[in-house]
């Protein structure tokens, strides 16, 4: 960790040369439908853990940040198309995405979890989910994992444009289970009145082997265009700074009782 931080600090210094763009105005994007990480408030503004972290990073970088709300489906294409400069939307760092964009260091990490009625005998494996309807949000890590390991082998996957819609159908009984990011499910559903009577079924999935870990990801990072290496470096520096000065922990405690950074 220290080594990479040092490396990035050096990078940031060298990037301070003639061609470096000094990022003083940054357009950040989030989805606003992934509580508690990013939520659309009643007045239409973006709030949540992602947004607080983003604002803390901007304060650390002394940059002026504006937030853009973007549908999850079009997030990476819109970044590439310069609609905004960075995505802070609880996006997992995956190989597939790294082909299109760069990521900062992780700012938190989360396993996957199967959400079902409390006491449900279901487990997050093929045999247990045979013939069951499992809801995932399209294009997320849980979708990728379920598609890769379960699709056509027993569980029937139902894809939703928004995570909230999967919970709606889980509650109404259209789904037997939802398969989602654990922290998102914890903050966005299980601890809310709507999520009463629902719980994590079986173990949380961190990835049994290197291949599974590759799908689940190295954690959640901030996505930046491949060209903008200086921005990535500046964000990493700021991230290390708020981790060190306690600002990160302050924000984390606002949302979660447990550590969500991992090792």
């Amino acid at each position: 960790m220290k080594k990479t931080a040092l490396l990035f600090a050096m990078l940031a210094l060298t990037a301070g040369g003639a061609f470096a763009k000094d990022w003083k105005e940054i357009r950040l994007a989030s989805e606003g439908a992934y509580p508690p990480f990013n939520i659309t408030a009643a007045d239409g503004s973006l709030q949540g853990f992602d947004v607080d972290i983003g604002n803390a990073l901007c304060a650390e970088m002394k940059a002026k940040c504006t937030w853009v709300k973007q549908e999850w489906d079009g997030m990476i294409p819109a970044l590439v198309a310069r609609k905004f400069d960075a995505i802070i939307a609880s996006m997992s760092i995956t190989e597939e995405r790294k082909a299109k964009v760069d990521f900062t260091d992780k700012y938190y990490a989360s396993p996957l979890a199967l959400i079902a009625k409390s006491g449900s005998p279901l487990r997050p494996d093929m045999a247990s989910l045979k013939g069951k309807k499992v809801g995932v949000q399209r294009g997320t890590v849980s979708d990728n994992f379920a598609t890769k390991y379960w699709e056509g082998k027993g569980p029937e996957l139902v894809r939703y444009a928004k995570q909230d819609e999967a919970y709606l159908d889980l509650k109404s009984g259209r789904l037997d289970a939802a398969f989602a990011d654990y922290l998102e499910a914890y903050g966005g559903f299980l601890t809310k009145p709507e999520g009463q009577g629902y719980d994590v079924a079986g173990d949380r999935l961190f990835g049994k082997n290197a291949e599974e870990k590759g799908v689940i990801g190295e954690g959640i990072g901030i996505a930046v265009r491949k060209k903008d290496k200086e921005l990535t470096a500046q964000l990493n520096k700021a991230l290390a700074a708020i981790r060190a000065n306690g600002k990160y922990e302050e924000i984390r405690k606002k949302y979660f009782p447990m550590d969500i950074y991992g090792n």
Binding site: D73, G74, P77, E96, R97, K100, R138, R159, A161
Partner: peptide
């Protein structure tokens, strides 16, 4: 129809789009 989880032509396109990031 893809708004209610049905995979019609547009739903298939959305799945392909999110899998390959190729809108």
């Amino acid at each position: 129809a893809s708004a209610v989880t049905l995979v019609d032509i547009t739903g298939a396109a959305r799945n392909v789009y999110s899998r390959h990031f190729a809108p």
